[in-house]
Write a protein that binds this DNA or RNA. Structure first.
Lengths: 183, 183, 183, 183
DNA sequence: CATGAATGAGAGTTCATTCAT
DNA sequence: CATGAATGAACTCTCATTCAT
């Protein structure tokens, strides 16, 4: 609900109705709407972080790991019902009134990017990725691919087409960053 | 104002004050807040479209044109005070209550993407861009680069660093899509 | 309404309904309920202060002035529909969330007590009031007489009885503080 | 808690926490918050009544008794942490939703005033107090002295100053009502 | 046409009260 | 009896929209 409709479009009444409890009950568990959203995001980010680690350790090379990670996130996004990464990504814009919670969120996001940074630098060290490119650029290009904004217009119900899109994005990205271009 | 603070964070009072007219006067020209925002976006999109065309015709090859376009949009985004593309991009998420206006916006967005699609297909026709990649993928990868969400965290006041980021993103993208990589 | 039912017992809906305007309209003129109450009190205190001065200047001796002042306040209180002093007195307990407004209120209350203090010290100087009594005690005894809490139970509709009560309170007070006892 | 912070500022949660039982348990013993407050006041009033009687029987003359009573109440008030009389006095303003309980409270308050009325009339009978003054006036003047509202602004931590204030108030009051002034 | 005070539906939040455990 | 999570009515406050001037 919150993940799909957004912060302002989702009222506490709606949330309560959707969860099947009374509005006041929410305030037993969360002191404010912001706190609720932050807690939700925190949970999602933690799940996402765990997912990242699980995905990474299933592969050995930096390239394979980064590619698997890209597929993992894309799969999540293409499931149409926005999920982990989507909710996180959507929330990075907002300014919450709870500095402490925001700090926790920022810390988690940092840990997420650290994983990717590690993969990139590892790949550069092993000679898999270009050393001429800054980590910053490769990181930015990586996460840019998951801009749900534009994805929405490209989502197709056809499983095959979606898969093909992901494959080609992977090709574009890795041709761009990898040392040996495939063409 | 609307472009920077967002739809919900900008009240009609603020808009009126900023424009220098009375709040009631706005409703003479626009039937609702949504209509106002849509009209604003429409104007921005039209300007942006004109900007695209101006940029494109300054170059001859598809590659040069697409690269110039990328730089044009990036410059807009990096100016920090969100401008044309930024306001458009930000608004694509929202669901307005005015179907007719939304349709006009959709039409304009389509005309924008058509420009890029034309460049891509032209480049494929001339052999500049890979024919194996679908237009969809190259289009998606192109607009993904402008995810302001993630850009925010990478914006730096240092002009030189920003420029370097753009250069490297261009390298990644075009190495990925172009037939002959330049490195 | 607010004066009679008290802060917590009077909702903004009630106030709006009583004044004959919409709830939202109140917030055009006052930023919060506290601000509204403080403004109301401020106005009452200013009126009261003006009333005090008007009463005082109608008499010449300290004794006559203080007595007239006592009658003035009592008359206000006995009118049953709580008025100036009553609303002020009732509000001295509350803790508002607007420090600035509270400071203004405190300043006004100080100016009110200053008038009485001046009368008392003047009377001591002229030999009308006992010099052995501290100003503080005479001041406190004076304002204590207007404790609406207890007054409520003694208010009678009979004009004559009310007047007699006031007369006797005056006698008790002034016999207590004046140099020459009457008895 | 209730005595100090007031009815509206004290929630059932706070009361439960303070008493050390669960919130729901309160409702086994008291049907409502009003009933709880009324019961608390009733207990306080009964204690106060017992205190009055204890104080009175320690002295013989009406004058001594009334003076001792005045000191007794004042001491309670000056202890800053509001106690018996204070809680009672504070509650007389409120309008409870339990007519029966309010009646019991009213009855107890009447019994309290009856003690004072008895002292006053006894003193008039023995010639200690002026017969010209109505019992009502002397009663009202007596309880007026305990207006906590104004007392707050005069409370000082200095034990000596507080005592001096009480002494002078006693002098003012008794000079006002007694037949022979003592100076 | 322009104005801005007035509107009122709806938002987030609180808290006395209830009831399954 | 005791519990405390759940309830929902009522509160304060916001803001897009209207309309008499």
């Amino acid at each position: 609900m919150l993940e799909q409709k957004g912060y302002h479009e989702t009222s506490m009444d709606e949330i309560a109705a959707r969860v099947g409890i009374a509005k006041g009950t929410i305030y037993i568990h969360f002191p404010s709407k912001d706190a609720l959203v932050i807690a939700l995001l925190e949970r999602n980010m933690q799940k996402f972080l765990a997912g990242i680690d699980a995905v990474i350790e299933q592969h050995s090379t930096s390239r394979a790991r980064l590619e698997a990670l890209l597929r993992y996130i894309m799969t999540d996004l293409l499931q149409k019902q926005m999920h982990l990464f989507s909710s996180i990504s959507h929330s990075l814009d907002l300014k919450y009134q709870e500095p402490e919670g925001e700090a926790r969120l920022g810390g988690l996001w940092q840990r997420i990017t650290e994983r990717v940074v590690a993969l990139i630098e590892e790949g550069q060290a092993t000679g898999e990725f270009k050393r001429a490119l800054s980590t910053q650029a490769m990181l930015y290009a990586f996460f840019s691919l998951f801009a749900t904004r534009h994805l929405k217009k490209h989502i197709v119900n056809d499983e095959h087409t979606s898969q093909r899109l992901v494959d080609q994005l992977i090709e574009i990205y890795f041709t761009g960053i990898a040392v040996e271009s495939r063409s």
